[in-house]
Amino acid sequence: MEEKLMANKFIDVASYQPDTLVYFKAAKRLGVKGVVVKITEGSATGTDYVNPKAANQIKHAKKVGMIVSGYHFLRSLSVPDAKQEAQFFIKEAKKRGLSTKATCVVDVEAADLTHNVAALTQQINAFFAEVRRSGFKKMAIYSNTSWFKTRINRSNLTVQNFWVASYGTVSAGMPCKAWQYSSNQMINSAKTDISVDYQGMFTKKVLRKQKKQPQKIKQNKKWVDNLGVTWYQEQGTFISDRAINLRWGARTSSTKIALLRAGSVVKYDAFAHSGGYVWLRQPRGKGQYGYLATGKSKNGRRSNYWGKFK
């Protein structure tokens, strides 16, 4: 699929996959740039599971130049459970060579069997609070599309980096940082999960900090268009993290030009706050412009981002 070709590839491994250098060299030859290694499952007083291959998988992945992340399979039934699981994960991850600069993932597929959405969401937040206190700064949540939409309250999560599993589909089905699109990638005769990374969270060493648009603009560089929208001149590049409509005007009622895919790169020359959104103006040649919303706005201030600026 064209969308997959646009992004960097990474795999995730557990005890089912090899821990040999040969395996990771084979993955590297396929263009795989990163790996997420299963470290633990449950807690020291509960399931007490540690992936016996984790240390070698981390070592050999680093040796071939892959970006290494780690994940924990959550089995908590309460907030105290979640905290204990986080402490267990942190201890074992550091012991096996996972750097605090690595991305830490919580795999949420079997927790909170009561189907209590609020309780599970609180447990995930408690897990990340412990991970954050231990010095890790990059965190993400893994689950399938159905769980993200029905079993977790995404808007109440303290971490908004989603890695979504959805097989046999044309997309992840929701905005996300990464999409696991197959569990059947063969690497050195071993079935392996494979994903695409849209923003470098699992495949790049250093993520650039998101640049916020300056709010103070010189008065001689602003104007009002024929829709009554006040624009401020600014040159820049925006990279979307979801599909966004490109329109002929800075209104949600304006005619659509095209649907820009996640990962689209847009060069713009001005921005505006209009109708509860922050809009960018894209020069299209011959005096024409396209307009796209890039996040929500309240009282003239941006409240979220639908991508990043560079």
Rank of each mutant, 00 (worst) to 15 (best):
V131A: 12
G70M: 14
M174L: 15
A140L: 05
F162Q: 06
A93I: 05
R208H: 11
V32H: 01
K209R: 10
K298Y: 10
S143H: 00
A61Y: 10
R251W: 02
A119R: 15
K4M: 14
S76N: 08
V117H: 03
S274N: 14
S43R: 02
K296Q: 11
P175W: 12
K4Y: 09
H60Y: 15
Y198Q: 09
D107V: 02
V266W: 00
N144Y: 13
Y16G: 05
I67K: 14
G42D: 06
A190T: 01
E130A: 10
K222G: 02
A258C: 06
S189W: 10
N125M: 07
A126D: 11
K308V: 06
A54K: 04
E3L: 11
K204A: 12
V37N: 01
K221A: 03
D107I: 02
E109R: 10
V36K: 10
V229G: 05
G228L: 00
K83H: 04
K205D: 09
R208Q: 10
A272C: 09
Y49V: 01
V35M: 00
H60L: 07
T145I: 10
D107W: 01
Q219K: 13
Y198K: 04
A126I: 07
K94M: 09
S189R: 13
D12W: 13
G300S: 04
V32A: 14
S15R: 11
T100R: 02
N125G: 01
I90L: 05
N56A: 07
N188S: 15
L260T: 02
S264L: 11
Q213D: 08
V117Q: 14
Q199I: 13
K205Y: 10
V196D: 11
M139W: 07
F136E: 03
V79F: 01
N125R: 01
N51E: 04
H72S: 13
V224K: 02
N51C: 09
N153I: 12
A243R: 13
T230I: 05
N245L: 13
W279R: 08
K216W: 00
S143L: 00
D81A: 08
P283Q: 00
I217L: 06
W147K: 08
Y71F: 13
V36H: 04
V229S: 03
V13S: 00
S134P: 05
S182V: 14
R29D: 09
L280S: 06
S253Q: 03
T103Y: 06
V278C: 14
A26R: 00
K221R: 12
Q219F: 09
K310Q: 11
G97V: 04
G300L: 05
K38H: 00
Y142V: 05
S43G: 03
